[in-house]
Simulated scan of single mutants.
Amino acid sequence: MTRLAALQHAMSPDIAVNLATAERMLATASQQGAKLAVFPEVQLSPFFPVRAGGDASRYAMQKDDPAITALGEMARKHRIVTVANIYFQGRDGERFDASPVFDADGTLLGISKMVHIAHFEKFWEKDYYASGSGFDVYDTAAGKLGIVICYDRHFPESYRACALQGAEIIATPTCNLAGEPLDLFAWEMRVLAMQNSVYSILANRCGVEDDTGYGGHSVIAGPDGSLLAEAGDGETVLFADYDLSERAEIARQRRWLAELKPWLRPETRG
């Protein structure tokens, strides 16, 4: 058995303060034996899309930004596969809600971008984010890891796209408000995990930013749909044990992915 961790915390307007929080929480996760840790959505800033038409350029980071380098160094120091989430600016100037993924040796394996962009009250994300072009799966020291960011999880095809690429674990950094149906979201993660025979990890923000509260209640679900762990509404490092051989046996017995009709597979469709 090895261990997964969702790092649930509140954010400061100060990037340095948020990096210090990241260091502290990764240290705790590593000390408790976690091999994979997942941070909430846009972990280095307040959740700026809560307001339409703002300017969040101070938080936009390119690949060589010192903050991204620091996160990679933390992953290396604590020997833990790390899924971060930042406001990322590509070389062409487009900006994304994106997750840098670091292996346990600190190597940056890639930066996955959110594909579906929300745009409604409290989530004016199209004012800030461009769309990514697909879903990524990485070979890591903790297993084959897929990335599905926040709003993308409401599109079941996102988890299925990762599972069809061989994902064993799927990480979902997110930002859920205190007033949203958090119990329903926990069931959502359980169903996605069950339907795709994967471990799912939803890492949410908590705390209050100006007049908006964030809900916490991060979730880790098993490949059989079981609820392995659920956080409360405060800062916590949420742990659950995982077993990839057990996951493989569940997938073998259910055969849902193997029996999926070829014409439903993305690579066979125009």
Score class of each variant (00 low, 15 high):
Ile220His: 07
Ile169Pro: 05
Asn176Ala: 09
Ser200Val: 02
Glu157Gly: 11
Ser200Thr: 12
Ala203Arg: 04
Gly213His: 07
Leu177Asp: 10
Arg190Asp: 03
Cys206Val: 10
Thr174Ile: 11
Thr174Arg: 13
Leu182Ala: 10
Cys206Asn: 15
Glu209Trp: 01
Ile220Ser: 04
Gln195Leu: 10
Met189Leu: 13
Arg190Val: 03
Gly215Val: 01
Gly216Thr: 05
Thr174His: 14
Ala163Val: 04
Cys162His: 01
Glu209Leu: 02
Met194Arg: 11
Tyr214Asp: 07
Ala161Glu: 06
Gln165Leu: 07
Val219Met: 09
Pro181Gln: 02
Val208Met: 06
Leu182Phe: 09
Trp187His: 14
Gln195Arg: 13
Ala203Tyr: 07
Asn204Thr: 01
Met189Pro: 01
Glu168Asp: 07
Gln195Lys: 03
Ile170Gly: 05
Val198Thr: 14
Pro156Trp: 03
Ala203Val: 05
Thr172Cys: 12
Thr212Lys: 05
Arg153Glu: 04
Glu168Gln: 11
Leu192Lys: 10
Ile170Asn: 10
His217Trp: 14
Ser158Ala: 07
Pro156Arg: 04
Pro181Phe: 02
Met189Ala: 07
Ala161Ser: 13
Leu184Tyr: 13
Tyr214Phe: 15
Ser218Pro: 06
Met189Asn: 09
Ala178Val: 10
Ala161Gln: 06
Gly166Pro: 02
Val191Asn: 01
Val198Ile: 13
Ser158Asp: 00
Ala163Ile: 05
Ala203Leu: 05
Arg190Met: 15
Ile201Val: 15
Leu164Tyr: 02
Asp183Val: 10
His154Cys: 13
Pro173His: 09
Arg160Phe: 08
Val191Ser: 01
Ala167Tyr: 00
Leu192Tyr: 03
Met189Lys: 05
Gly215Ile: 02
Ala193Met: 02
Phe185Tyr: 15
Leu182Trp: 12
His217Phe: 13
Asp183Gln: 13
Tyr199Arg: 09
Ala178Asp: 13
Asp210Gly: 08
Leu182Gln: 12
Gly213Leu: 03
Ser218His: 10
Pro173Thr: 08
Leu164Asn: 09
Met189Tyr: 06
Gly207Met: 01
Gly166Lys: 02
His217Gln: 14
His154Met: 13
Gln195Asn: 15
Cys162Pro: 01
Gly213Val: 11
His154Glu: 12
Ser200His: 03
Leu192Asn: 14
Tyr214Glu: 06
Phe155Ser: 06
His154Asp: 10
Pro173Ile: 12
Tyr199Val: 06
Ala171Met: 00
Ala167Gln: 01
His217Arg: 15
Tyr199Thr: 00
Glu157Asn: 11
Val198Gly: 13
Gln165Phe: 05
Leu192Ala: 15
Thr174Gln: 14
Pro173Cys: 09
Asn204Ile: 00
Asn196His: 06
Ala193Asp: 03
Trp187Glu: 15
Ser200Gly: 05
Leu177Trp: 07
Ala203Lys: 11
Ala193Ile: 04
Ser200Ile: 00
Ser200Glu: 00
Asp211Cys: 10
Ala193Gly: 11
Ile170Ala: 06
Ala167Ile: 00
Leu177Glu: 03
